[in-house]
Simulated scan of single mutants.
Amino acid sequence: MLQVKHLLDDKGREILAITPDAPVLDAIKTMAERRVGALLVMNGNELLGIVSERDYARNVVLKGRSSSSTNVLEIMGPGMITVGLDDTIDHCMRQCTNERVRYLPVVDNGKIVGVLSLGDLVKAVISEQSEQIEQLQRYIAG
């Protein structure tokens, strides 16, 4: 069964983060430059939350706030769901569905070691299912 550590081995373990006191404009610029939809919000090595494009749209744009004078801490989403390296992809998919989140920070021994997006999980499930279908077709043909 596919685990988080396998996805991170393929995807990489780069951590994209921003400080809670940074202007939202900096977060949005970083997301655009790095072509990602969210950043971890960290104070040193401490994970405080996640800020996403959705947070920006709902808490800055729709409320008529200024991107340059609003801090990340003011708009980031509440709560934090994390997963571990040994968690299965099925478990992660259930977490995303049940908690209605799109990003899961990966923690190992209290340290952030990566981030999985819902897109990463869907891609892994599709790949795993394609392999199973291929194996079944070879078995039937064979």
Rank of each mutant, 00 (worst) to 15 (best):
M1W: 09
L2S: 11
Q3M: 10
K5A: 11
H6M: 09
L8K: 00
L8W: 01
D9C: 03
D10K: 13
G12E: 00
G12Q: 01
L16T: 02
L16H: 14
A17Q: 12
A17Y: 07
I18G: 03
T19A: 15
P23G: 03
P23N: 06
V24T: 03
V24E: 02
L25N: 11
L25E: 15
L25T: 10
A27I: 04
A32Q: 13
E33Y: 12
E33N: 14
R34G: 04
R34M: 10
V36D: 02
V36L: 00
V36G: 00
G37T: 00
L39H: 02
V41G: 01
M42A: 04
N43L: 11
G44Q: 10
N45W: 13
N45A: 10
N45L: 11
L47H: 09
L48Y: 08
G49Y: 10
G49T: 02
I50N: 01
V51P: 02
V51K: 05
V51M: 07
S52T: 15
R54D: 07
R54F: 03
R54C: 04
R54W: 05
D55G: 06
D55E: 07
D55I: 01
R58K: 12
R58D: 14
R58T: 11
N59Q: 12
V60E: 01
V61Y: 15
K63S: 11
G64H: 10
R65E: 14
R65N: 10
S66R: 04
S67D: 09
T70D: 05
N71I: 09
V72K: 00
V72I: 03
L73Y: 07
L73D: 12
L73A: 11
E74R: 09
I75V: 12
G77Y: 05
G79V: 01
G79N: 05
M80E: 04
I81G: 04
I81Q: 11
I81K: 09
V83I: 13
G84S: 14
G84W: 08
G84F: 07
G84H: 09
G84P: 01
L85E: 11
D86E: 14
D86A: 06
D87V: 04
I89K: 00
C92H: 02
M93Y: 13
M93P: 04
R94D: 12
C96L: 08
C96F: 06
R100E: 10
R100D: 14
Y103D: 05
L104T: 00
L104S: 01
L104R: 00
P105F: 04
V106H: 04
V106A: 03
V106Y: 04
V107A: 01
D108H: 15
D108Q: 11
N109R: 14
G110T: 07
K111P: 03
I112Q: 08
V113T: 05
V113G: 03
V115G: 02
V115F: 10
V115W: 06
L116E: 02
L116H: 08
G119S: 14
D120P: 01
V122I: 13
V122S: 03
A124D: 03
S127V: 07
S127R: 14
S127E: 15
E128Q: 12
Q129S: 09
Q129K: 14
Q129F: 13
E131P: 05
I133P: 15
E134I: 06
Q135N: 12
L136C: 05
R138A: 15
R138M: 15
Y139D: 05
Y139V: 06
I140Q: 09
I140C: 06
G142E: 12
G142Y: 14
G142V: 06
